[in-house]
Design a binder for these strands. Structure first.
Lengths: 198, 198
DNA sequence: CGCTATGTTGAGCAGATGCTCAATATGGAA
DNA sequence: TTCCATATTGAGCATCTGCTCAACATAGCG
């Protein structure tokens, strides 16, 4: 039995996408990294398919790297909020922006990224639901609340990463914390939200 | 004095970008539309510069088309909210997503789009400030509030247009209305926000 | 008219890139 | 060992695309 070179090609593509972004990766880069001939890539994949599968795999890998487990829902939420605009998470969100942009015109990409998007919402919704069940906060419709929080976060992340418009990371984090507190009926912690922002 | 063919090239590029998106437009498309030779484009511009200038011009044109004037700030806000997720506005937001994505790796694009981004924030901030001055609502820091509202809107628009994750236009509009009402201390209008969402 | 400066043209260049396909290697069955 | 199906290779093809540059057109001036 030979090594599974199909999987090697997919893994190489995902690695390269994490390193250079989706748009910058070429078929030749992938086959070189995987240590196989150019022809083999086209034997197993069409480039659009491979790129979409690899991008989704890269997204999951970044999500796993950025969103670690925590014991209790309130700790999980703290971790989410404190890492939301950290530079550690930049690769994830750069990739996310690129993938969603491509998904507008590439059906393969749209299909492949579907699971990631739903996964992110569901993961946050689960945290919110657990916290609500444990009376840590109030959250009648966790899925909808998760959607809102992620939408706000997504928008702010775009601002921070593109500078359109220019927003400081710390300000973005403060905005998000304030929104989440509002959303969950938690008391505002004014040390986190400078009066210049609200 | 000859016709200003430089302006014709820029205008043709902007038109094509509005029709097909930034990524789909080629130098040859632009010169053909402008009715000039290929060489003239390169005489007056570098392609990256032209693309960035034209994209910014296209953005402004879409903004002007989607955001008309209204007499009073509360009417302006109503118009903003009711059009925020209308299909009329799709071209604007598709373009916006593409431009911000490109701005991450293209300094020309980032510089050209800067004004658009600041303009959108300032325009909304002005509305919020006027409304606050007229005691229509409460808004201590209009610029920060405008930033938050646009960030939330941007995030939701991305969800609606890419389907990552899938969100209905009507739900997105309801979420945004609720967010704005919360932000401005307005009473919630429950007919606009189904209980399924909150 | 001749002369010069500026405006304009488009065939063709150079480089990039996904993909083909004839040739070759490999592994297992008979 | 022989044979065949499958795996694998990479030079080369076809296409695309921004840009060059030698040639040509035009307008203003003396």
């Amino acid at each position: 039995m030979t090594i599974d070179r199909r999987a090697a090609i997919l893994a190489a593509a995902a690695d390269l996408i994490r390193e250079k972004g989706v748009a910058a990766v070429r078929t030749r880069d992938v086959t070189a990294r995987a240590g196989v001939g150019i022809g083999l890539l086209n034997h197993y994949f069409k480039w659009n398919e491979l790129r979409a599968l690899a991008a989704a795999q890269a997204l999951w890998a970044e999500i796993d790297r950025v969103v670690p487990d925590a014991p209790a829902p309130d700790r999980q939420l703290d971790v989410f909020l404190s890492r939301a605009f950290g530079e550690d998470a930049d690769p994830l969100w750069r990739l996310w922006i690129e993938v969603t942009d491509l998904a507008m015109s590439d059906p393969d990409m749209a299909r492949a990224a579907e699971g990631c998007a739903e996964g992110m919402v569901n993961e946050l919704a689960a945290i919110l639901e657990q916290g609500a069940a444990g009376h840590l906060w109030h959250c009648p419709v966790p899925h909808a609340a998760a959607l809102r929080i992620l939408a706000f976060h997504d928008g702010l992340v775009g601002f921070v990463l593109t500078g359109l418009p220019k927003v400081e990371r710390a300000d973005a984090a403060a905005h998000l914390k304030r929104f989440v507190a509002l959303e969950l009926g938690l008391p505002q912690q004014n040390d986190h939200v400078p009066s210049r922002l609200v």
